[in-house]
Amino acid sequence: MKQNSVKKGNDRQSRVSRVLIYLILIIFVVFYFLPLYVMMVNSLKPLEEIRSGGMLNIPLVWTLDPWRSAWASAQIGVDPSGLKPYFINSIIMTVPAVIIATILGSLNGYVLTKWQFKGHGLVFGLLLLSCFIPFQIVLIPMAKLLGIFGMAGTTQGLILVHVVYGIGFSTLFFRNYYAAFPTEIVKAAQIDGAGFFRIFSRVLLPSSGPIIVVTIIWLFTNIWNDFLFGASFADFDSIPMTVALNNLVSSSTGVKEYNVHFAGAILAALPTLIVYIVSGRYFVRGLMAGAVKG
């Protein structure tokens, strides 16, 4: 009887603490989502409604005009072009950079774990070091190099910069993943007569799904969101989305169109958001796979 009442007490206690935990979590979620909510509701309001206050209110008049304007007709710098051309700039910069950095990273990881050469540790260490060099330090030398290569102000130049910076992390990811991949399998493939690239493409790569996703998410987010390199190295026709967004917000034609700015900001964040939602579950899985065994 006594034991039973103790148990009941424990039950009540655990229920109370559980409610408390959820309450705190919910508060954090609300807090975290508040900015997105503000952006969302205000991007769907006419400008007058924003100016009359009530930033947290649901729109009285729903409108998609701010979105249309941000996409196609808003003033960016001197052009009333909207964000569309810059969105496309960002895509043609980000996609090749991500693909190239991922391929090079996976090859690096493959060589560093399965075809080890003298000094492989040093090479890996140097590649890792590149992850920790602040962007600002390389701005001037990089500008100089791009000039020498004749790539100054071009999208190719930006791709090169992002690939160079991306290789460090992509190599780290793949190296750790392949370190856990049994070397005996590579030996078996050698005996079976597969060469360097065949072993890579037929045996390792098909087993690398999770880590490819992790690398792509990581690189895509970083490259898409980069502002500094875009602002420093891009010319008029290669300006990426982030820089264009800044220009949108700072080019004023009298009134600040907050609703258009909000819509533009969401547009700029949309691709990374989609990448996360589509492949986010692999992200955790892939990071774990590398972390536990690597």
């Binding site: 049994p182 005996e184 399998i185 030996k187 078996a188 493939a189 050698q190 005996i191 079976d192 007569g193 037929r202 045996v203 098909p206 087993s207």
Partner: peptide, 21 residues
């Protein structure tokens, strides 16, 4: 001589099967 040219076959401790095939 390359392993594949030695007319040998090997069975490994971990079996070393190709996981994706």
């Amino acid at each position: 001589l390359h392993p594949s040219k030695r007319n040998i076959a090997m069975v490994f401790q971990s079996y070393a099967l190709y996981p994706n095939m």
